[in-house]
Measured scan of single mutants.
Amino acid sequence: MATGGRRGAAAAPLLVAVAALLLGAAGHLYPGEVCPGMDIRNNLTRLHELENCSVIEGHLQILLMFKTRPEDFRDLSFPKLIMITDYLLLFRVYGLESLKDLFPNLTVIRGSRLFFNYALVIFEMVHLKELGLYNLMNITRGSVRIEKNNELCYLATIDWSRILDSVEDNYIVLNKDDNEECGDICPGTAKGKTNCPATVINGQFVERCWTHSHCQKVCPTICKSHGCTAEGLCCHSECLGNCSQPDDPTKCVACRNFYLDGRCVETCPPPYYHFQDWRCVNFSFCQDLHHKCKNSRRQGCHQYVIHNNKCIPECPSGYTMNSSNLLCTPCLGPCPKVCHLLEGEKTIDSVTSAQELRGCTVINGSLIINIRGGNNLAAELEANLGLIEEISGYLKIRRSYALVSLSFFRKLRLIRGETLEIGNYSFYALDNQNLRQLWDWSKHNLTITQGKLFFHYNPKLCLSEIHKMEEVSGTKGRQERNDIALKTNGDQASCENELLKFSYIRTSFDKI
């Protein structure tokens, strides 16, 4: 039985969820670079991206490699990797027998973001014989899940209580170790020597080791999670996991709180800001991140802002960003909400898709409305799209047979046209069989910064309504002859009103 693990408890099935942008060198404390989270699957090609990484700022997932063999891993080693800020997950990587050479110096898994409450997941690794993470000293947050690894031993010899604050939620089941077939031998045991430290858990006094050649490092209890030197002297209180010299914040392997210019500090002093819960960055760093993602459509890219001495992905609820200094300031009234469309555009074809934009005031991208039916549609669209004030790209209304009016965009005031449909149009209306009105132009103002209007096959939309939009939106004169079809717009509506004058002759039985 794995020490510190839980057996036999019912657990939810383990679901495996399925960018080499360097964020800056980590400095003297770390020998390499800070790398983003990685999802490495199918083959070993991307694994080489770990070569210079000291910190993975995010998670590391290595999974679904069915053609790899043990010899493929023999020359692979990433000794610079010290810390993973989120979680480490391995799933069905064939041929991998140990992690001792792959990650010989991995010391800390912070667990800032977890995989279903777990910071370390080893699942269905069919050839893994031992973990071998002999320098792993601290899992700051989260638990361990090690399950269905039929060859995995050296679990009962690990004292997880020396690595985690609590072992109650560890789930370590259905491994070879369960069948008591392992016969784990710690260093020196074969020669009758006791080389590794022994600890007591559940009444068992057991030597602690990761492999037959690597003991588990056990520091004096007084050192807590700070770690200790090879001689057993406690590291500085700002260290986490390990250090090369005692009581020196510049000799830590990793930091308990924050890293700044080669030393570990309790908090980031001005003019620095907390970033990702582990390091200090200056304003320029946060500003660069903001600008890199301002026009990016890459998933996970955030326009970072500053709030409460932190550089964070977005302002919290009730705050909006001051564009001059990136500071989050309290909103006066309802907060603006910028919604970034991942692929640059979004099609609204149902109430469900409209709900995804609920509360958005600025759309960074283009909207395509293609709704053919739905219950209580006008009210639903207004509830979900009615706060949109600005669209950076274009607005396209296409084959939306259920629409009679666009009044559900009740606050839309600006279409920038930074991206144009077919390279020309910022407003595009095609084949809307029941569209009769755009907006009530006596109450609604709309500016279209650039781009043209396109109207074709809107049989109940009168040309007068379209011409009014040209005047109000500032697009009059931009359109070419064929942009607004004269014969297919309003051709099934009563669009022309003329005053009919009647004269009559009164007659009676005795007068003409």
Results as ranks from 00 to 15, higher is better:
Leu29Trp: 10
Leu29Gln: 04
Tyr30Val: 06
Glu33Ala: 05
Glu33His: 15
Pro36Met: 14
Gly37Lys: 03
Gly37Cys: 06
Met38Arg: 05
Met38Val: 07
Ile40Asn: 02
Arg41Cys: 10
Asn43Tyr: 11
Arg46Tyr: 06
Arg46Gln: 10
Leu47Val: 01
His48Ser: 11
His48Glu: 11
Glu49Ile: 13
Glu49Asn: 15
Glu49Lys: 15
Glu51Lys: 02
Cys53Leu: 00
Ser54Arg: 15
Val55Pro: 00
Ile56Thr: 01
Ile56Asp: 00
Gly58Glu: 01
His59Ser: 11
His59Ala: 10
His59Gln: 14
His59Lys: 15
Leu60Ile: 10
Gln61Ser: 10
Ile62Gln: 00
Leu63Phe: 03
Leu64Arg: 01
Leu64Gln: 02
Leu64Trp: 01
Phe66Gly: 04
Phe66Tyr: 01
Lys67Pro: 05
Lys67Thr: 05
Arg69Trp: 09
Pro70Glu: 05
Ser77Thr: 12
Pro79Trp: 11
Lys80Leu: 10
Lys80Trp: 06
Lys80Thr: 12
Leu81Thr: 13
Ile82Lys: 04
Thr85Val: 09
Asp86Val: 01
Asp86Lys: 14
Asp86Arg: 06
Phe91Asn: 04
Arg92Thr: 02
Tyr94Ala: 11
Tyr94Ile: 15
Gly95Asn: 08
Glu97Trp: 13
Glu97Pro: 03
Ser98Asp: 14
Ser98Leu: 01
Leu99Cys: 06
Leu99Ile: 09
Lys100Cys: 15
Leu102Phe: 15
Leu102Pro: 01
Pro104Phe: 00
Pro104Asp: 00
Pro104Lys: 02
Pro104Val: 03
Leu106Asp: 00
Leu106Arg: 01
Thr107Val: 11
Ile109Gly: 00
Arg110Phe: 05
Arg110Ile: 10
Arg110Pro: 00
Gly111Val: 00
Gly111Phe: 03
Gly111Cys: 02
Gly111Thr: 00
Ser112Ile: 12
Arg113Cys: 06
Arg113Leu: 05
Phe115Ser: 08
Phe116Gln: 02
Asn117Met: 05
Leu120Ala: 05
Leu120Pro: 00
Val121Met: 02
Val121Phe: 00
Val121Gln: 01
Leu128Ile: 13
Leu128Ser: 02
Leu128Cys: 03
Leu128Lys: 00
Leu128Pro: 00
Lys129His: 03
Glu130His: 09
Glu130Ser: 10
Leu131Ala: 08
Gly132His: 00
Tyr134Asp: 06
Asn135Arg: 11
Asn135Thr: 11
Leu136Trp: 00
Leu136Cys: 03
Leu136Phe: 11
Met137His: 07
Met137Cys: 15
Met137Arg: 08
Ile139Ser: 00
Thr140Cys: 09
Thr140Glu: 04
Thr140Ala: 11
Arg141Met: 02
Arg141Thr: 00
Gly142Arg: 00
Ser143Arg: 10
Ser143Glu: 02
Val144Leu: 09
Arg145Gly: 02
Ile146Asn: 00
Ile146Gly: 00
Glu147Ile: 15
Lys148Trp: 09
Asn149Phe: 01
Asn150Leu: 14
Leu152Thr: 01
Leu152Ile: 08
Leu152Tyr: 00
Leu152Val: 10
Leu152Met: 15
Cys153Ser: 02
Thr157Trp: 02
Thr157His: 06
Thr157Ile: 03
Thr157Gln: 04
Ile158Phe: 02
Asp159Cys: 02
Asp159Arg: 02
Trp160His: 00
Ile163Lys: 00
Ile163Phe: 11
Ile163Ala: 01
Asp165Ser: 10
Asn170Arg: 10
Ile172Phe: 04
Val173Ser: 13
Leu174Val: 12
Leu174Trp: 14
Asn175Lys: 07
Asn175Asp: 02
Asn175Ala: 04
Asp177Arg: 05
Asp177Thr: 03
Asp178Cys: 02
Asp178Pro: 07
Asn179Lys: 14
Asn179Pro: 03
Glu180Val: 05
Cys182Ile: 01
Cys182Tyr: 01
Gly183Asp: 14
Cys186Val: 01
Thr189Gln: 13
Ala190Gly: 13
Ala190Thr: 10
Lys191Met: 13
Lys193Gln: 15
Thr194Pro: 14
Asn195Gln: 15
Cys196Glu: 02
Cys196Ser: 05
Ala198Ile: 05
Thr199Asp: 03
Thr199Gln: 07
Ile201Arg: 02
Asn202Val: 02
Phe205Asp: 01
Val206Gln: 15
Val206His: 01
Val206Ser: 03
Cys209Glu: 01
Trp210Cys: 01
Trp210Arg: 01
His212Met: 02
His212Asp: 07
Ser213Trp: 03
Ser213Met: 14
His214Lys: 02
His214Met: 11
His214Gln: 13
His214Asp: 07
Cys215Glu: 03
Cys215Phe: 02
Cys215Gly: 02
Gln216Thr: 01
Lys217Glu: 08
Val218Met: 05
Val218Asp: 04
Ile222Leu: 11
Ile222Phe: 07
Cys223Lys: 00
Lys224Ser: 06
Ser225Asn: 13
Ser225Gln: 06
His226Asp: 10
His226Arg: 10
Cys228Arg: 01
Cys228Thr: 00
Thr229His: 08
Glu231Trp: 05
Cys235Tyr: 01
Cys235Ser: 00
Ser237Asn: 14
Ser237Phe: 12
Ser237Met: 08
Cys239Tyr: 00
Leu240Met: 06
Leu240His: 15
Leu240Arg: 06
Gly241Ile: 01
Asn242Trp: 07
Gln245Asn: 14
Asp248Ile: 05
Pro249Met: 04
Pro249Asp: 03
Pro249Thr: 12
Pro249Cys: 07
Thr250Asp: 07
Cys252Thr: 04
Val253Gly: 07
Arg256Pro: 03
Arg256Val: 07
Arg256Cys: 03
Arg256Glu: 08
Asn257Ser: 12
Asn257Lys: 12
Phe258Gly: 04
Tyr259Met: 08
Tyr259Asp: 10
Leu260Ile: 13
Leu260Val: 07
Asp261Ser: 10
Asp261Lys: 10
Asp261Gly: 06
Asp261Arg: 03
Gly262Phe: 13
Gly262Tyr: 04
Gly262Trp: 02
Arg263Gln: 08
Arg263Ser: 12
Cys264Leu: 00
Cys264Ile: 00
Cys264Glu: 00
Val265Met: 10
Pro270Phe: 05
Pro271Gln: 07
Tyr272Gly: 03
His274Arg: 03
Phe275Lys: 02
Phe275Arg: 02
Phe275Asn: 08
Gln276Met: 10
Asp277Val: 06
Asp277Leu: 12
Asp277Ile: 05
Arg279Pro: 01
Arg279Cys: 09
Asn282Ile: 02
Asn282Val: 05
Asn282Gln: 04
Phe283Ser: 10
Phe283Gln: 04
Phe283Ile: 15
Cys286Ile: 05
Cys286Trp: 00
Gln287Phe: 13
Asp288Tyr: 08
His291Val: 03
Asn295Ile: 15
Arg297Leu: 11
Arg297His: 13
Arg298Met: 12
Gln299Ile: 09
Gln299Thr: 15
Gln299Ala: 07
Gln299Lys: 14
Gln299Leu: 12
Gln303Lys: 04
Gln303Met: 12
Tyr304Val: 13
Val305Arg: 13
Val305Asp: 02
Ile306Pro: 06
Ile306Gln: 12
Ile306Lys: 02
His307Asp: 15
His307Leu: 11
Asn309Arg: 11
Lys310Ile: 09
Lys310Ala: 10
Ile312Met: 13
Pro313Arg: 11
Glu314His: 02
Cys315Pro: 01
Cys315Glu: 00
Cys315Asn: 06
Pro316Gln: 03
Ser317Thr: 12
Gly318Thr: 03
Gly318Val: 08
Tyr319Cys: 14
Thr320Cys: 08
Met321Leu: 02
Ser323Pro: 14
Ser324Gly: 13
Ser324Trp: 08
Leu326Cys: 03
Leu326Phe: 04
Cys328Lys: 00
Cys328Gln: 00
Pro330Phe: 05
Pro330Ser: 13
Pro330Trp: 13
Cys331Leu: 03
Cys331Trp: 15
Leu332Arg: 15
Pro334Gly: 08
Pro334Lys: 14
Cys335Pro: 04
Cys335Trp: 14
Cys335Lys: 01
